[in-house]
């Protein structure tokens, strides 16, 4: 039985040796085809990505409507934009009972010259943006001006606002810019919003009224 087997095996082997020439050639051809279809990578340096719509500087300038030298500024500087660290500074304090108009500046200083995000991007797309404000323990009220830019859903955008300082107090003030809110409402002036994405959400602490 064993001898039969080995004969059979030899026959098979011979047959296969004939065939293996053909298969080797096929294999080489196949390898060649595969190498051709795979693209070569280039050794160039990758392109730098500077995220679009970057905001680095947000400055709120409150000017006393009756006294142009009574100014409170709140500035937030985030050199790497929304995803990096930031510094907030409040200069000056409000005077109780006075009325202030707020002037906003929103820029991208990582470009040169700086990019005016407020006037070039936000205001032209006012129907997609909405500012909300908030205060905590500091006694301030605000209203959106009649001349404010029209925002989404018949609401005022919140770029031109007037603030009245109440009794002497200390606390914090928040400004939030929401992009594409699902719902927005300015009926309480500070503004409320649902959905959307926050372009920024900055709280200045150490706000005081004397």
């Amino acid at each position: 039985m064993n001898t039969n087997n080995s004969n059979l095996k030899t026959m098979k082997t011979n047959f296969l040796y004939l065939n293996s020439m053909k298969t080797s050639k096929l294999f080489v051809a196949a390898m060649f085809c595969l190498t051709l279809i795979t693209s070569c990578s280039d050794d160039d340096d990758p392109v730098i990505i500077n995220p679009e719509e970057l905001i680095t500087n947000v400055t709120l300038t409150f000017t006393n409507t009756g006294n142009a030298t009574d100014i409170v500024t709140m500035s937030s500087v985030a050199p790497d934009g929304q995803d990096g660290s930031f510094t907030n500074i409040v200069v000056g304090s409000f005077t109780s009972g006075e009325t202030y108009s707020l002037d906003l500046a929103i820029t991208n200083e990582s470009e040169s010259p700086a990019d005016d995000v407020l006037n070039d991007d936000i205001i032209p797309e006012a129907d997609e943006h909405f500012f909300t404000y908030g205060v905590n323990t500091v006694s301030m009220t605000m209203s959106r001006d009649a001349g404010d830019v029209d925002g989404p859903d018949g609401n005022k955008l919140g770029v031109n606002t007037t603030w009245i300082a109440g009794g002497a107090s200390n606390g914090s003030l928040n400004i939030t810019l929401v992009h594409e809110p699902v719902g927005s409402d300015d009926s309480n002036n500070f503004g409320t919003v649902t959905g959307g994405e926050e372009d920024f959400n900055i709280t200045f602490s150490g706000v005081s009224i004397n």
Partner: peptide
């Protein structure tokens, strides 16, 4: 968390 001007992440 990391504080950013979009809030803390």
């Amino acid at each position: 968390f990391i504080s950013t001007i979009r809030g803390p992440f």
